[in-house]
Simulated assay, not measured.
Amino acid sequence: MDNTLAKTKPAASSFTRFWKDYGWAYLFILIPLLLFVVFTLYPVISAFIMSFQRYNVLKSKWIGLDNYSYMLQDSVFWKSIKNTVLFTIGTVPVNIIITFVLAFFIFQMKNSFQTFFKAALYLPAVASGVTISVVWLAIFDPTPAGLLNKVLGFFGVEPSVWLGQSSTALFSLMLMSYLGAHGAGIILYLAAMGGIPKSLYEAADIDHASGWAKFSKITWPLLKPTTLYLTVTGVITSFQVFISVYLMTQGGPNFATTTIAYLIYQTAFQFSDFGLASAQSFVLAAMIIVVSVIQFKFFSSDIEY
């Protein structure tokens, strides 16, 4: 019996010492871990199970892959995928170019001017998406008194119902994206540009390198990690575009602006088909993961000079 106590005492002492050294660290980790499990992991698992059910609050029925089968045969679903892809292709590359050009010119300015432009251009990111959408509703007012129609009227262009025509509705949402939400990207680009060693440019000057050579061989390669980050986050954001569609077009006209995120909202909260909405959500998540992995695989690189 004494030998048993002798064997268990060091183990207990070791655990006590470990808890005394690291116990508080694990307690601090436990709180965010519990929040993650309760508010993220559990809902995701529940939604995944729900995607195989005809959901009802009182009693759900297991239907296997029927939700996925119905979704793949739904023309509106494929229309929403098409609109989402078009919106992504039409906004992400253009926004990155606009962001980079603005950051490049701001970087040439004095610090006081840089601070002013960074604050001014970051302001839309602070403003509510609802507020920005309401402002753009006034800009796209279809009457001749609408701001956009009035400006184009000076050039002899007839007033247009920008959000009420299938041919212009999606482009109007893209235009809204082009003229705002560049602040965060500009700050990231400016920080990356400031981190490029000046000695590289000094060496290029000694070799009589042109401005384009310095840009293509030094500036742009060293900004590729920042560009990749902005591309990945931009694609994820554009795949989930919802607020502007909900407030400005409600997916119309004729499903011209129905995105996959808005379709999920309609399916769940207007038609109360939570099982189908869950299936659509996981298809959207799979699309985002696949596109992100492809971007990292083909565009990421470690560049050192």
Score class of each variant (00 low, 15 high):
residue 55 Y to E: 03
residue 88 T to H: 05
residue 78 W to P: 04
residue 86 L to S: 09
residue 64 G to D: 04
residue 50 M to K: 12
residue 60 S to G: 06
residue 83 N to W: 08
residue 83 N to V: 10
residue 50 M to R: 11
residue 66 D to W: 13
residue 65 L to E: 05
residue 61 K to M: 14
residue 90 G to F: 04
residue 88 T to K: 02
residue 63 I to P: 06
residue 79 K to N: 04
residue 82 K to V: 08
residue 45 I to S: 04
residue 69 S to I: 14
residue 82 K to L: 04
residue 80 S to L: 10
residue 92 V to Y: 14
residue 80 S to C: 09
residue 82 K to D: 11
residue 92 V to P: 14
residue 67 N to W: 09
residue 44 V to T: 15
residue 81 I to T: 12
residue 64 G to I: 03
residue 65 L to Q: 07
residue 92 V to G: 09
residue 77 F to P: 00
residue 85 V to A: 10
residue 69 S to Y: 15
residue 74 D to S: 01
residue 91 T to G: 03
residue 48 F to D: 11
residue 71 M to P: 11
residue 54 R to F: 04
residue 54 R to A: 01
residue 62 W to T: 12
residue 64 G to V: 03
residue 54 R to I: 01
residue 87 F to H: 11
residue 86 L to M: 15
residue 50 M to Q: 15
residue 63 I to A: 03
residue 59 K to D: 05
residue 73 Q to L: 12
residue 83 N to G: 05
residue 52 F to A: 01
residue 88 T to N: 03
residue 63 I to F: 08
residue 46 S to K: 14
residue 47 A to G: 08
residue 90 G to Q: 12
residue 79 K to I: 03
residue 64 G to M: 03
residue 88 T to A: 00
residue 62 W to N: 09
residue 62 W to H: 08
residue 88 T to L: 01
residue 84 T to C: 10
residue 55 Y to Q: 05
residue 68 Y to W: 09
residue 89 I to E: 10
residue 63 I to Y: 05
residue 74 D to G: 01
residue 47 A to V: 12
residue 50 M to A: 13
residue 67 N to M: 07
residue 79 K to M: 01
residue 61 K to A: 14
residue 88 T to M: 02
residue 71 M to I: 15
residue 46 S to A: 13
residue 62 W to F: 15
residue 71 M to N: 14
residue 83 N to K: 11
residue 45 I to K: 05
residue 79 K to A: 00
residue 77 F to I: 02
residue 51 S to I: 00
residue 66 D to T: 14
residue 49 I to G: 15
residue 68 Y to F: 10
residue 78 W to Q: 05
residue 43 P to L: 08
residue 58 L to Q: 15
residue 90 G to V: 07
residue 45 I to H: 07
residue 60 S to F: 02
residue 53 Q to A: 00
residue 82 K to W: 09
residue 69 S to H: 13
residue 53 Q to C: 00
residue 77 F to M: 02
residue 80 S to W: 12
residue 92 V to M: 13
residue 51 S to R: 03
residue 67 N to K: 11
residue 68 Y to Q: 03
residue 49 I to H: 15
residue 64 G to N: 06
residue 53 Q to V: 01
residue 70 Y to L: 10
residue 84 T to A: 07
residue 53 Q to L: 00
residue 85 V to P: 04
residue 91 T to R: 04
residue 52 F to D: 00
residue 47 A to E: 10
residue 69 S to D: 12
residue 75 S to Q: 07
residue 65 L to R: 04
residue 82 K to C: 00
residue 92 V to N: 14
residue 53 Q to H: 06
residue 58 L to E: 13
residue 50 M to D: 03
residue 44 V to R: 13
residue 76 V to F: 06
residue 52 F to H: 04
residue 52 F to G: 07
residue 70 Y to V: 06
residue 73 Q to W: 09
residue 67 N to I: 08
residue 88 T to R: 02
residue 67 N to H: 13
residue 66 D to G: 02
residue 48 F to R: 08
residue 55 Y to D: 03
residue 44 V to A: 09
residue 86 L to A: 07
residue 43 P to F: 07
residue 63 I to S: 05
residue 69 S to V: 14
residue 55 Y to N: 05
residue 51 S to N: 02
residue 87 F to E: 05
residue 84 T to K: 14
residue 58 L to W: 13
residue 71 M to C: 12
residue 78 W to N: 00
residue 86 L to R: 11
residue 81 I to P: 00
